[in-house]
Design a binder for these strands. Structure first.
Lengths: 156, 156
DNA sequence: GATTAATTCATCGATATAAAAGTATATGTG
DNA sequence: CACATATACTTTTATATCGATGAATTAATC
């Protein structure tokens, strides 16, 4: 072994990516009969909980860039799921709100969130699940700090 | 609260997705100075460990579909990182091998895998990390079973 | 209050990913 | 052996995502 390479099976980057792909594919399979893609799902999920938010807030809630949010919201508007209107107090901001159609999807689809998480968690001890969730959260925070440092370093 | 919706913060789908995005963004930032994208990274990582594999095997190693592998390998060939040749024993198969250039990148880049994982793991107890890795692995397996069932159900 | 900074959103071009359908080859079964 | 089925790959088309850049608006500073 000329180079000391980590075993991907023990790499969080690798394992998190694999797990994410499978969550996304299973969700995609569940949404397909409803004519919906996972891209919209994450926004709907956020809006069902906090409706009438800015695109910046939505981007934070869905963990994507504001660029992605623009095109996703455009798509959702075309599909009649949300409305967009300029914020009167701060004209830079756009406020995104569910239409009745978008709101109505909650009853129809929210079960998939519970079902798919239940499938993933099957046979795993609650204590282990809690630890994993906590570790994921702390890793996300650690990575965000590194990302901020990387961005700031470019400025100076 | 009309509908019982799970808190995304407690949803593995949500937390795994968020963590994945941040891993991918930090990796992207590290690779950028080398003119490389994360898309190639996962293939290089697999090939550094198991060179001379079929595209099917590569797809399994990188957790993407064979469709994705075709376009990624085409790109890597254009960049001189791998060669592709037909398997003589089974002419359906294509064998993918690193070029010296692709092989040489290991020494240059493998450190990022270790660095980024170390950043993510900072301040987290080894026991918790081990639990999380194990849970991720079991969740991936659970989800794959559900995916296989979904696919098979379509056939019959 | 004029100028500079930061914030928010949009546009454009590129990359990453997958499903569906098609082609070539191999395998299994009568 | 012939035919049906399975496997491996490719092509096409669509979706999801981001970085770089720019425009409009607000906030900060002098």
């Amino acid at each position: 072994m000329a180079v000391n390479h980590a075993d991907p099976q023990k790499s969080f980057g690798h394992q998190v990516r694999r797990c994410h792909r499978r969550f996304d594919r299973l969700l995609s399979a569940r949404l397909a009969p409803h004519g919906l893609k996972t891209g919209f799902w994450y926004y709907l999920r956020a809006l069902w909980i906090a409706d009438d938010v800015t695109q910046k807030q939505l981007s934070d809630l869905t963990n994507v860039t504001e660029t992605t949010t623009v095109s996703m919201i455009n798509g959702m508007i075309r599909h009649g799921l949300v409305d967009r209107s300029r914020d009167l107090a701060d004209k830079r901001k756009m406020r995104v709100k569910l239409t009745p159609e978008g709101r109505a999807l909650e009853k129809e689809l929210i079960g998939y969130a519970l079902e798919i998480n239940a499938i993933a968690m099957a046979g795993i001890a609650p204590k282990e699940l809690a630890t994993c969730l906590s570790v994921l959260s702390r890793m996300s925070a650690n990575l965000q700090i590194a990302l901020d440092e990387t961005t700031n370093a470019d400025d100076g």
